[in-house]
Amino acid sequence: MLEIVDLHVSVGGTPILKGLDLRVPRGEVHAIMGPNGAGKSTLAYVLAGKEGYERTRGDIRWDGKDLLSLAPEQRAIAGIFLAFQYPVEIPGVNNAYFLRTAVNLKRKARGEPELDAVEFLRAARERLRLIGSDDGLLQRGLNEGFSGGEKKRNEILQMLMLEPELAILDETDSGLDIDALRLVASGVNALRSPERAFLVITHYQRLLEHIVPDRVHVLAEGRIVASGGPDLAQRLEREGYGWLAERRRASEALG
């Protein structure tokens, strides 16, 4: 279970998250929606442990453990995975080498035997098929010269190989055409299980037609301002975010 309590986060002295509360139990998919600049990516980065994101108040717990006290690599080993919105290109690092090392680091930490090159390739091929890609992706430099769609698929491939317990998808749908979107969604759906929690961050409702969430939360101005079932996403799609702001202004006026 992921528990975020009264989280305040500043970036370069500017408050971005201002009292965010969220609980995501294992086995559930929660969607975070919200307008640009609401703090969606900040939430993703704070969970993954990026430098420069300063917690000024509040807590994040994963299975009761204090997540913020862990280094990014310790979080990864603990089962946290962030699918980046803008995966970085690292020329000179072979994608297959990178992914196999990452998988084996995690296996080693868990006391499981490491995968050799053949076992790794077999496992990777299976998952590549699921997201409509082939080995070509593996033989290139890490994200080097990848198209937007290839980068997103590569993130999903990593997620499928690393089998995280908490997966955070940061706008994985942005820049994808409908076919690619479907394949990415099928990758995520393949991993859904009672042990796993997902946090799907998106600007549009489109992705949620293919990954049907258990809960939808609206993040605006650094806080969760509304929560509901999948129908909340549909309403946001129809009416935009304006009605939420109006509702908030009204409730603030009432004191």
């Binding site: 442990g49 430098e51 690599e73 979080r75 990864a76 995966p87 690292i90 930490a109």
Partner: peptide
């Protein structure tokens, strides 16, 4: 950060 987020020290 990208590499560390995948478990590399």
């Amino acid at each position: 950060f990208y590499l560390r987020s995948r478990g590399f020290s």
